[in-house]
């Protein structure tokens, strides 16, 4: 572990303890330290920055309201990512349910609006990835999303998911297999 990481860890520990003692400023600092990491995880699951931002906001509020329950201050990052990824998966499934309520007529109308240029835009890929992620199980979606995050060791991913490193690797393998089929046109 590098000196920088050790300092950040110590800082986090102190900030968590201060937050638990009721120091709101300390929690604001934690937000600043971890908002990027939380956002990366949420975007990977939801495939959409707007929805991810909403999920991250709710995740931090949830963390703030329950920070007193966190026993080990060192585990803040893992705890926060667990909250955010769970919220992101719930959000994705909720969005899927809402999307299913759209009538066939509505979806045809939407298709008319799209031009050929637009259909080959990043929006299309974004949507395809979002739909593909929804076809994965919760664990697979979590594993593949967290596995690709920089600075997040496999051990940490396993801790966030509450399973062994081997199990994480298995979920990643399964997720890749499924995504390769679902997104074959983009590979």
């Amino acid at each position: 572990m590098g000196e920088g990481q050790r300092t950040a860890k110590r800082d986090t520990e102190q900030l968590v303890k201060a937050s638990q003692a009721g120091d709101r400023g300390a929690f604001d600092e934690l937000v600043l330290l971890y908002q990027r990491c939380a956002m990366c995880a949420a975007v990977r699951i939801l495939g959409n920055a707007e929805e991810a931002a909403e999920t991250v906001q709710n995740g931090f509020v949830n963390a703030y309201l329950n920070i007193g329950k966190l026993k080990d201050a060192e585990q803040f990052e893992i705890w926060l990512l667990r909250i955010v990824t769970n919220a992101a998966i719930s959000q994705a499934r909720k969005a899927k349910r809402n999307a299913q309520k759209i009538t066939i007529d509505d979806s045809l109308e939407d298709k008319k609006v799209l031009s050929p240029v637009e259909s080959e835009s990043s929006e299309e890929l974004k949507e395809k990835i979002k739909q593909a992620m929804l076809k994965l199980s919760k664990k697979e979606a979590k594993a593949i999303s967290l596995f690709g995050l920089e600075d997040l060791s496999h051990k940490k991913v396993a801790e966030i998911m509450g399973c062994s490193v081997e199990a994480v690797r298995w979920h990643v393998f399964r997720a890749r297999q499924k995504l390769k089929v679902l997104l074959k046109d983009y590979l």
Binding site: V43, A49, S122, I129
Partner: peptide
């Protein structure tokens, strides 16, 4: 490659985030 595709999409999404 699939990891790259996901990474690419995530980066694209995060590119315009106003932190």
């Amino acid at each position: 490659k699939i990891d790259l595709l996901l990474e690419c999409n995530a980066d694209e999404q995060l590119k315009n985030v106003d932190w």
